[in-house]
Design a protein around this nucleic acid. Structure first.
Lengths: 248, 248
DNA sequence: CGCCATCTTGATTTTCGTCAAGGTTAGTGG
DNA sequence: CCACTAACCTTGACGAAAATCAAGATGGCG
């Protein structure tokens, strides 16, 4: 479990609140201990959220960077495209997660963010966030942590891609999703995938056929029930066991 | 070339200067346009550098986080260790690079940083850096960029691990090293590796035997000259060509 | 000078990718 | 509401790539 958390990083309640601040500022206020004046400033920071239809690009590589985005509802994938056209999904992002931080360095986005279902996002103009961070130390510290968490998550994915076998990768993926759904108040046992087998494969460094085969194998072995994109985890302990190189 | 830069990220002159600030603050001063008073504050921020012998751990996973580290001279590897003991090298870090940013999120280090040769580092106490960032907006922005660059670099490694074949990975690795040596004023054509085949393999998601075989193959094909850890790049264009999925 | 870590190379096995065919689902428009 | 289509998924057979196992060779360091 801590393995999984380590692998992908997990959204803290704090991060969740921060991201939701577009809709519910009071939630953000509590952990940061902000006063009324500060809260009002924060309120002005967050643009009113807007909607993205399934398949829409929130931003594309090369676009000039002006804002970060907090996923309010729905699900996005981010992917980098290499010069010769290879696509690597770098992450799947659910409510409460902040995306676009890769663009800060060059002031241009370096990846594409695509909505996997109809979604809602909050735009966070970066220049204004920077100002506010200077004025509110707790917010500054929080934002550093959000960026750092992304780095830790990426390191976990590197471990997965560099060291794990196909079955271990898929087990890690399912357990990570399960945990993220749970932390959002949904069932950790049953959930619907928002992405295709190909997108899962791209993220895990596998081909879609391999992903499909392993789903079937897991089902045969009674660890999960797979019905197209509907997943039920039957034997979570065994999945975790698989992850740890099959040592108890 | 831009492919390689995209793959691993590259140290900007700016980042280099910032990291070197422990030794030469004037260099940092120029791009940020700081005044004398600000410079003095910055000077106080950076502890006097200290030395690390080959094999020393700068920090280990689990250690409480107090400071970032700028590599002043030498070379470090950072690696995450999974629960079941698998080690994944997440990066090799040369002079001018800042490491330890993964620790900001949990206030504990999440990876090990090991010196690959006798090295010198500057300690940057994080709490004081935060303070200073609030006072010097240019520094704040710069630090966000440094963290963002790390995220971009990690995405490049994910692309490498998820999409590339063994030969492409090693070609990317060599070209990246070449570029980094060049930007530090060393020859981009001849250089010495500081890491073992096993460490290269861990970083690239390969076994050491595979790394060794591909070195031999590259040499047979006249692309590089390999003499233990001494590398000479003979046919850089062909290496780049290999990277791009062999399309011109 | 000798030892231990590191590296190379070969033979074999395993894993996963590729190619191919067919089935299922969701979404569209009549 | 249903038929149709395109996207998506599953499964099998085969092949390629890299891991594993094994045996020496080399070189750096005490």
């Amino acid at each position: 479990m801590s393995q999984v958390a380590q692998l992908f990083g997990e959204v803290s309640a704090q991060q969740l609140r921060a991201a939701c601040s577009g809709c519910n500022l009071k939630e953000l206020c509590l952990p940061l201990g902000l006063g009324d004046a500060e809260m009002e400033q924060l309120e002005r920071l967050i643009h009113k959220g807007h909607a993205a239809k399934k398949g829409d690009a929130l931003y594309r590589a090369g676009a000039t960077f002006t804002a970060l985005y907090a996923v309010k509802a729905g699900c996005f994938k981010t992917c980098v495209i290499s010069e010769d056209g290879r696509e690597q999904v770098t992450g799947f992002h659910m409510s409460g997660e902040i995306i676009g931080m890769d663009a800060i360095s060059t002031e241009r986005h370096t990846c594409n963010a695509i909505a996997l279902e109809d979604s809602e996002i909050c735009e966070i103009p970066f220049a204004r966030l920077e100002d506010l961070c200077r004025k509110i130390p707790a917010l500054q510290r929080h934002f550093y942590k959000v960026m750092s968490r992304e780095i830790v998550r990426d390191h976990g994915v590197m471990l997965l891609l560099g060291n794990m076998k196909a079955e271990e990768r898929l087990a890690a993926f399912l357990l990570n999703l399960s945990q993220r759904f749970q932390s959002r108040g949904y069932s950790p046992r049953e959930f619907n995938l928002r992405m295709t087998r190909e997108e899962i494969g791209s993220f895990l460094g596998l081909k879609l056929e391999t992903v499909s085969r392993i789903f079937s194998k897991f089902q045969e072995e009674g660890m999960v029930k797979v019905n197209n994109r509907q997943i039920e985890l039957i034997d979570t302990p065994r999945l975790k066991h698989l992850l740890n190189g099959c040592q108890p």
